[in-house]
Write a protein that binds this DNA or RNA. Structure first.
Length: 273
DNA sequence: GCCACTGTTAGCAT
DNA sequence: CATGCTAACAGTGG
């Protein structure tokens, strides 16, 4: 389940192998992956060089020359696979970027077919307009900026962290892990946070996301980076997926509840406020 | 074979 | 601003 740390890990693995390479073209096997552009428009990709790889929240960006970018969202089961073009494509591969001067290609596969890509025109510094409505990057957020962001919010902490217009990139796993690290109850109201609790939340979200990026993200089921490597952060999960197992800090059984339709894991003793 | 569940987002109603 | 529902889809496990 690619959230910010997983998408960032994919971005880094792709950057190492794609930057500077030239595209020979692309193939669209599943037209459903195209968002707001027709297959014919993708012909302009041919001959363009990969300038950079970017990320915004959970979106991955392949920045090409001439002000053209490809913006991907992996949703739940989207994957990139960088590999030999001689390997047959499986039925879950919906889009392929062919690279010039070699036998490799970049494959976008997605078992559940929710993942999307779109073509965006504009220089790299103009890309932000393609993400209107998306909140700021959690890892580039100062303490005071976070305080301003929280001000006026009334919802539950868990739902707030999942809200992409509040902060970009946090999903179900990291929302739970961040709240455990901050020792805050998922049902606590954002409006009821003391300044100390709010600062703890800010510190925790930076620490948890930063650590997860350093460990290459979490592989719970099928997440892999573009080189096929799993993440390592799942080893350090304190609450996610640990319902009824003893809390690593106090031995109290971890509880699982449903908040806003999403499964939520927390320690009733460590996260009593 | 059936059913519930998995997690992300958009779109809708309230 | 918030909450709750649905739908998109395929695989997994009971």
């Amino acid at each position: 389940m690619p959230e910010l740390p997983e998408v960032e890990t994919i971005r880094r693995s792709l950057a190492r192998r794609l930057v500077g390479r030239r595209l020979a073209g692309c193939r669209v096997m599943g037209p459903h992956v195209l968002q707001g552009c027709r297959p014919a428009e993708l012909r302009q990709l041919r001959g363009l060089r990969v300038a950079d790889l970017g990320r915004r929240g959970k979106y991955l960006i392949i920045v090409l020359e001439k002000g053209v970018s490809l913006v991907f969202h992996l949703k739940m089961t989207g994957q990139f696979l960088l590999g030999g073009a001689e390997r047959p494509l499986d039925r879950h591969t919906h889009f392929v970027l062919r690279l010039a001067g070699g036998k490799e290609d970049l494959r976008f596969r997605d078992v559940r077919k929710f993942g999307r890509l779109r073509l965006v025109r504009g220089r790299e510094d103009e890309l932000e307009s393609a993400f209107s409505g998306l909140g700021p990057e959690p890892l580039q957020l100062g303490r005071d900026e976070f305080a301003r962001l929280v001000k006026g919010r009334t919802g539950r902490l868990k739902s707030l962290l999942l809200n992409q217009s509040f902060l970009a990139g946090i999903g179900n796993i990291y929302a739970d892990e961040i709240l455990f690290a901050a020792r805050l109850h998922p049902l606590a109201s954002a409006a009821g946070l003391s300044p100390a609790q709010r600062n703890r939340l800010w510190r925790s979200l930076r620490r948890v996301l930063g650590r997860a990026v350093a460990r290459g993200g979490s592989t719970v089921r099928d997440y892999r980076d573009a080189d096929g490597r799993t993440g390592l952060f799942q080893i350090e999960h304190k609450v996610y997926g640990r319902a009824s197992l003893p809390c690593r800090r106090c031995r109290q059984p971890i509880r699982r509840i449903v908040v806003g339709g999403r499964s939520t894991h927390f320690c009733p003793r460590c996260q009593s406020s």
